[in-house]
Amino acid sequence: MKEITSNEVAVKLAEKENLHIIDVREADEVAQGKIPGSLNIPLGLLEFRMHELDKSVEYTIVCHSGGRSGMAIQMLESHGYKVVNMTGGMLAWEGAIE
């Protein structure tokens, strides 16, 4: 599984790199704050919303601590998507939230 740290994500965002971040937490968790520009697709709905994603794009997957994002990674990779797991999830995130 390909991984990226929360600090590496923050640097890429600061450098205006075009990141595609999917937050797989539940809506009530996301309401407490998410990485600016991230798309919320709760893990339980991911299988049904995969068709919204582009297989030519790499997605950074985020959850609360890294467990659910790992499950999302396995599911998406098995369907041919390019994905990377943000280690530590939102617990490790020190950047801005919206």
Rank of each mutant, 00 (worst) to 15 (best):
L43P: 07
A72Q: 02
L13D: 01
A10I: 14
V24A: 03
D23Q: 07
Q74A: 12
L45P: 10
I4F: 10
E52L: 09
E52P: 09
I73Y: 15
N40E: 08
L13M: 13
I22M: 03
V24P: 00
P42R: 12
Y81T: 02
G89T: 09
H20I: 03
E8F: 08
T5N: 08
T60F: 11
C63M: 05
G88A: 14
I21W: 01
F48K: 15
L13H: 03
K82N: 12
G80A: 06
A31R: 15
S38Y: 08
G37K: 06
K2Y: 15
P42L: 08
S65G: 15
V9P: 14
E94P: 00
L39K: 14
K16G: 00
V24M: 03
I61M: 11
L76H: 01
V83K: 01
I97M: 07
S69A: 12
S78F: 00
L13Y: 02
E98A: 05
E77R: 10
A10D: 14
K16S: 07
E8M: 09
L76S: 01
G95T: 08
L76F: 03
E15A: 12
G44K: 13
I41E: 11
V84Y: 04
L46N: 10
G70P: 01
A27D: 15
N40D: 05
T87V: 15
R25I: 00
Y81E: 02
E29F: 07
